[in-house]
Design a protein around this nucleic acid. Structure first.
Lengths: 188, 188
DNA sequence: CGTCACATTGATGCCTCTCAAAGCTTGTGG
DNA sequence: CCACAAGCTTTGAGAGGCATCAATGTGACG
């Protein structure tokens, strides 16, 4: 189910698409014509640093809208790649902007969504600023960032996967986390 | 000059205030009743990690609006402290929400402002994810984050001030940055 | 002129990255 | 059903880089 407030848009503003693992949805510099609703699968937004290091800006999960910030931008600022076969709906950018102009409730709801994103980015900044690997992993798990794929998780929180495995092991041993299966952990 | 779109608000929604170095404007958990426009001085938004490490979420500079995300939140998520005597204008939260409901252009402009903040946070995340201190400092200076106070700058980019000084020195020696004075650097 | 905060440099230790290897799971094809 | 490959998981060893502690220099301000 498309999240509010996008259900208010005309059906003509929406088109479906599917992606396979490894596909690129858009690249940094592309001109944004739509934003996306992810129904299933995973899409990563990532950039590359000057030295070639890959940096994950955001992981879109099923049910989420992503690339919203491109509504007010003339170019995407990152690449979007599919990391698990995905179904998604394109939402026409012009239709969204028009709805904002004509429907105050739509505008308000969209702003609230942006505000929520800002706060989630702040949490992420807070996380990345934590110096200790163990503490960072612990907070990240508590924030629900770990969903099965530990290597992606490690990249998201700015650690090598080895350091992440070691921290997870230590946290499980000390009882701060529960090991619920192979590569699966939960807050106690 | 108050930035757009807030000039559209009635004068009754605005009140002036001043802060001295060290003053606290609000604390994490406080209920937000207004957002702020900083005319002069500096205000830091910061949080504390579990281990007591202080984390700077945002530094508000003169001319900026800050704490906007609190419009849609029932509590501030960080502390705001003044680090340089400041003049600011409180903008009533209810008046802003009302303006969004009644004035589509206002809503659109505010959303655009949020979208801009999202992109600046993404840049920040990208910065924090860079492993090498030298590269991180170089990018941060290029982004204009260094404005005189190197200790604050160091905290903002998640490095100790010593590591920051050393990186700055090295970058200046190798010509990637220009030292323009005591504690002052610029991109060449 | 003394104090204070910032700026700078040195030495040491710990933590994480990197490279490496081996065990484990899953899937694929013969 | 087995063999093999590919990818994730886990553990080890070594090196390098950043944090930390420490000391000194420097400018601003009363």
């Amino acid at each position: 189910m498309l999240p509010a407030p996008f259900t208010r848009l005309a059906a003509s503003a929406l088109t479906s698409a599917s992606l396979s693992n490894g596909d690129t949805l858009f690249r940094q510099g592309d001109r944004p014509l739509c934003i996306y609703w992810l129904e299933a699968g995973n899409v990563l937004l990532r950039r590359h640093s000057r030295s070639g290091q890959e940096i994950i800006i955001h992981r879109a999960n099923p049910g989420e809208i992503f690339a919203e910030a491109a509504l007010f931008s003339s170019a995407y600022h990152c690449d979007a790649v599919c990391t698990k076969d995905a179904l998604l709906t394109r939402i026409d950018k012009a239709a969204v902007l028009e709805a904002m102009r004509t429907d105050p409730d739509f505008a308000l709801a969209l702003s609230a969504r942006f505000a929520g994103q800002i706060q989630s980015y702040r949490r992420r900044i807070e996380l990345l600023a934590v110096a200790s690997a163990e503490e960072r992993v612990c907070s990240a798990v508590a924030d629900g960032l770990l969903d099965g794929n530990i290597k992606t998780f490690a990249a998201e929180i700015g650690l090598s996967h080895e350091a992440t495995y070691r921290a997870l092991g230590k946290l499980a041993k000390s009882g701060k986390l529960l090991k619920t299966g192979r590569g699966a952990y939960a807050a106690p």
